[in-house]
């Protein structure tokens, strides 16, 4: 009990320190313009758990896992870590996830995409993490095959046969895709 109290007390200052800085980088850029030390510190304000990557633009943590998974597998895997399949709300966030999940070599199969959290349910597309659908990035001609392609994948590599799909979204069926991306808030 006593030992635990000491351990906790030594960590409290860290929490206070972190909480004293603004959450969003863009917002703080104006306030701290010209003050390098503060900008430097802000670049380190991510508090993501092990294995997750902080993105300062959104202040969220992401993890791309290259393991064959369909929507159900990916959805469950993210939730088992306290995360959700990633939602995307801007071109900037989209490009970050393309970089995070890119394979970087020859990708020519229709199951070599990356699962994200957009699903077609109750006659509308929605994010599994509950955030609003305020940005869309479908590839040309997508979404199609609405009878069975009710889930969404990010095309993070160039497919020689479908070059225009690169960085865009494609709705898919329950086939396993190459990877999936989880998203969660930082701890502090």
């Amino acid at each position: 009990m006593f030992l635990s109290f000491i351990i906790l007390s030594t960590f409290l200052p860290s929490v206070v320190f972190s909480a004293s800085f603004p959450s969003f980088f863009n917002e703080s850029a104006y306030e701290t313009s010209g003050h390098k030390p503060e900008i430097y510190q802000l670049e380190y304000s991510g508090g993501c758990i092990s294995g997750y990557t902080w993105f300062s633009y959104t202040n969220f943590c992401y993890k791309s896992t290259a393991r064959a998974a369909n929507f159900n597998d990916a959805h469950n895997a993210c939730r088992s870590e306290g995360s959700e399949l990633a939602s995307i709300h801007s071109l900037t966030e989209n490009q970050f996830l393309v970089q995070l999940s890119a394979a970087g070599n020859r990708v020519n199969s229709k199951t070599n995409y990356v699962m994200i959290g957009l699903i077609f349910e109750n006659r509308e597309w929605s994010w599994t993490d509950g955030s609003s659908v305020n940005y869309l990035n479908w590839a040309a001609g997508e979404p199609n095959n609405m009878k069975h392609e009710l889930w969404t994948a990010l095309v993070s590599d160039v497919n020689p046969k479908k070059g225009q799909m690169y960085t865009h979204w494609n709705n898919v069926n329950m086939d396993r895709q190459r990877a999936y991306i989880c998203k969660r808030a930082p701890l502090n």
Binding site: S4, I7, L8, F11, S14, V15, S18, F25, E43, Y44, S45, G46, G47, C48, I49, S50, G51, Y52, T53, W54, F55, S56, Y57, K63, F96, Q99, A102, A103, G104, P186, L187, N188
Partner: peptide
């Protein structure tokens, strides 16, 4: 006491690994 393992802070684009307490970044290029 999960708060004891408050993750270390890595810069944007880097991934923290708790066992080594280092930040890593894989760049596909």
């Amino acid at each position: 006491c999960p708060s004891v393992t408050i993750p270390s802070h890595c810069p944007s684009g880097y991934t923290w690994y708790d066992e080594t307490d280092f930040c890593y970044k894989n760049t596909v290029r």
